[in-house]
Design a protein around this nucleic acid. Structure first.
Lengths: 336, 336
DNA sequence: TCGATGTCATAACCGCAGCTTATGTCCCGA
DNA sequence: TCGGGACATAAGCTGCGGTTATGACATCGA
């Protein structure tokens, strides 16, 4: 297995120096973790209490499930289920592993919901246009909830910056839009569905990470930063906020995606200014640190928008109601 | 349970009806989502800006990466990268999909960290014993953080109920333990590292879900509930709290794992009393609803424990510091 | 006591997904 | 003009995960 052929030419495997993004151990993750099918099977067995029934539910044969489960246990080196002629019960370790697997599957479900919408044809029942920030961090959860509430609603998703979203909604190419920004685009009605804030973040090793006295706007404006490219909503807000303080300094790096900016900052390139939604996980895991900041308003509203006068109806109304319900329940959430 | 299973025997592969736990679309998820390897590849391409370099990092050949990426795009029906003789850049949709993929990979990393510890031999440098609740919801994140801070620390994990954890720590079979409960086990020193609370939860359709007036302790004590089995920490706390109000009624269902209890409640079996950590995701996604409760203290502390007098040192100290840092930063967090 | 039913395990066979090596094409920079 | 990097295409091979067919064991109900 693993090794197999080639002999991995150059790369003595040894993981290029250190650093990197923050990935954990050695070798590609996929070689060290069971695949999604195995995790799904485990969850099904946990729920149904029998290998055979789980197999049937997944549309595979009982021996296939049996073999797969055995392989899973061998690979993990732990007994997960206690087999008996009356069915299969999880062991303690099995319950543990199942819960961990559930997390993976939930994230995969969010992926699927998003991918499905992205592929959705333009004649779907509900056409959504969303800014990158909303689409990346919030939309998948909404789509799953919508699917549970109204199964069979075909959704299509177009992602772009806030201006593009506004245009699409105004032109009738989308039924509902989600934008982040300072003001409501002309010609559209809007409802605030959440709030976002830009944070100054650094790697834990950076001098700023240990600051107790808040950064001043002037300091921030004078420091070269890792930034999103011009034209992004994030950059707009920052530019506007720093305009009165000597404008932002020439960027240290200008990257086209939030992901790239995060990666650069994590690996120590320098401080970045990014959406709180985007860095929530990194902050929680300690891969990034938020730097306190004084005297600068970097908040912005997340809004749903639709053509002025045309109250959303049908699926659009359902989705809108959903987003507001979740905003009420909870702070900006990870995956959900 | 409820519907689903029963029928859908043969399943001509054509995806058993719908319903089920709350999973989304048709058929097994694994058939509709790219595998972990593909997601990892996408993330690597995003970071490195080239298919070939990503391939080298993952230890596969360039054509393999190229083909895989193409397959991924075909399957999703969306162009993810813009190829050029100078490298590959993500498209907007690519950035989106990459971020969604990152969530999956992060959950998989947590899985791996946990599984690795579970398999860890007893002669590891750091032997941890943890209650199920802590092991399920908090430990993987800590292990990842620990691994980043002190790579190469071999960790072994034993999971069990709080009493078993206390025994193992006292007997010197574990260097550090994590328990939830009302009091500190005798013979051990402890530090509070977080708080947990039991919540009364129901499916959104249940009458209690719409209650505005809080439930009284008496009502709760008189209602048959979905509960964890006797001996679990969760059950102990509830029994103790309801003892003064007529004790808990005979259980509606008594299940051996939190997962099973959640599943039963989600599918409408009846109200359950479960740890806030365990139901956070379901609450956020609206699959469960928390019922307000008055006049009953269902809080409990999460504690790290070690043999009295023996201050943790070495890796144990590192892990302990980490857990406290995270507890400070953040409320009980989902994944990492 | 004895089928009937349900569970899981074993055995033999097979197809396909994904890998490899070897090449081709394109573009850029020296 | 040429070297080098990046991606694509074209073979061929391996093995994982699937299938059917069967056997060994419990448990339930008459």
């Amino acid at each position: 297995m693993t090794s197999s052929a080639g002999g991995a030419p150059s790369g003595p495997g040894g993981a290029a120096s250190g650093g990197d993004t923050g990935a954990a151990g050695g070798g590609p993750l996929a070689y060290r973790v069971p695949d999604l099918g195995a995790m799904e099977l485990l969850i099904a067995v946990a729920r149904l209490g029998s290998l055979g029934r789980a197999a049937r539910e997944l549309g595979i044969s009982q021996p296939a499930a049996s073999g797969r489960m055995r392989a899973l246990e061998t690979r993990l080196g732990v007994a997960l289920v206690r087999r008996s002629p009356g069915g299969s019960q999880l062991t303690d370790e099995g319950a543990l592993v199942t819960e961990w697997a559930r997390r993976v599957i939930e994230a995969a479900e969010a992926f699927d919901a998003g991918a499905r919408a992205l592929r959705g044809r333009r004649d779907s029942r509900l056409r959504v246009a969303a800014s990158m920030t909303v689409a990346e961090y919030l939309l998948p959860g909404w789509l799953i909830a919508l699917h549970e509430k109204r199964p069979g609603t075909a959704v299509s998703l177009a992602a772009g910056n806030s201006a593009a979203v506004a245009r699409q909604v105004a032109a009738g190419e989308a039924d509902l839009g989600f934008v982040e920004g300072l003001d409501v685009p002309a010609g559209l009605d809007a409802a605030v569905i959440g709030h976002d804030r830009l944070l100054v973040v650094t790697a834990p090793g950076h001098p700023w990470a240990r600051r107790r006295t808040p950064l001043t706007a002037g300091e921030l404006a004078a420091t070269p930063l890792v930034l999103r490219e011009e034209g992004s909503g994030t950059r707009q807000v920052l530019d506007a906020a720093l305009a009165g303080h000597g404008g932002p300094a020439v960027p240290l790096l200008e990257l086209a995606s939030t992901t790239a900016a995060k990666a650069a900052t994590v690996s120590g390139a320098g401080p970045a200014v990014l959406s709180e939604l985007a860095v929530a996980e990194e902050l929680a895991a300690g891969r990034l640190t938020a730097v306190p900041l004084a005297g600068l308003a970097l908040g912005r509203s997340l809004r749903a928008v639709w053509p002025a006068g045309h109250r959303p109806a049908g699926p659009a109304r359902d989705l809108l109601a959903l987003t507001r319900a979740q905003a009420r329940t909870r702070r900006p959430a990870p995956t959900s």
